[in-house]
């Protein structure tokens, strides 16, 4: 029963850190990752989740421990220790969170860069008309992948997205296709140029980990590269009216051959609602 407090604290601290790391790495709270962004995002999530788990469990443990250990027992009338502060302790718990926060900030900057967040939004505008429009673009995410693959002749697939109460419309300028669902080939960067007709909507694909508001009067850009074939929901994430909850669509990620079939079947014709 005579383990020194310092060693006990050290061991508990290590158990806590390892436990937090284990939770962060092994408890999966996210849906399937289906875009090039998603694994990068999940890496950030695991780091944040680990740090959060360590902090939360540590503080929860301290509160519960204090309440049990330092509870007033029957017959105790005296006060606790007259301790008004401890400078080194206070410097410690100012400096450590500051370092953690700085690390998290720099790390998430790096993640953001890898997701293409720092790519200039006008980038990837190939035709003259789009070049003109880039001055008006207000926000969104460019694509790192797009930057890399333009050289290997796999240019970004441009799609124009129009959001309205309560539907998304997708127009493929090449082929002049209008579709109610977004069809994209696996592995090719896609560049959405989005604008709303009436109120603000938001384009969200949870499996891609991306979201961007679609704003009337101000085009926004969203780039992504799908990596897993399948059918994923597109969800409107900004309150847009009574039927906001039912404003959903789907993105269909297909093998390039399947996509080409779909494309040639629909090109030059107009499909009102898929």
């Amino acid at each position: 029963m005579s383990i020194p407090i310092a060693i006990l604290t050290l061991v508990l601290g290590m158990v806590l850190v390892l436990g937090g790391l284990w939770i962060g790495q092994n408890v999966n709270l996210l849906p399937v990752d289906a875009s090039a962004n998603a694994p990068v995002y999940d890496e950030l999530f695991r780091v944040l989740f680990s740090i959060g788990a360590i902090l939360f469990l540590g503080i929860l443990g301290l509160v519960v421990f204090s309440l049990i250990k330092f509870r007033r027992r029957p017959g105790q009338l005296g006060d606790g220790l007259a301790l008004e502060g401890n400078l080194s302790l206070e410097v410690f718990w100012t400096a450590v969170p500051a370092v953690i926060v700085l690390f998290v900030g720099l790390y998430s900057f790096d993640i953001y860069d890898r997701m293409g967040g720092m790519v200039p939004l006008g980038h990837g505008a190939h035709d003259h008309q789009e070049m003109e429009m880039q001055q008006n673009i207000w926000g969104g995410i460019g694509s790192k992948a797009e930057e890399l693959t333009t050289e290997s002749n796999l240019a970004a697939l441009p799609v124009e997205v129009t959001a309205m109460q309560y539907a998304f419309l997708f127009r493929y300028p090449r082929g002049d296709i209008i579709s109610g669902e977004l069809h994209v080939p696996v592995g090719q960067p896609v560049r959405l140029r989005m604008e709303a007709k009436d109120v603000i909507h938001a384009f969200w694909v949870p499996e891609f980990r991306i979201k961007q508001d679609v704003i009337p009067g101000q085009p926004t850009i969203l780039s992504f590269t799908a990596t897993k074939p399948g059918r994923y929901p597109i969800v409107c994430a900004e309150l847009c009216g009574p039927y906001h909850g039912s404003m959903r669509s789907a993105v269909v990620v297909e093998e390039p051959t399947d996509y080409d079939t779909w494309f040639s079947n629909n090109a030059k014709t107009t499909v009102p609602e898929a």
Binding site: V40, Y41, L48, G52, S108, E238
Partner: peptide
């Protein structure tokens, strides 16, 4: 603090 990180927030904002 998690939500303050732009890349994290882009997925969970308005959810």
């Amino acid at each position: 603090v998690m939500l303050a990180q732009v890349p994290f927030d882009i997925h969970v904002h308005d959810t």
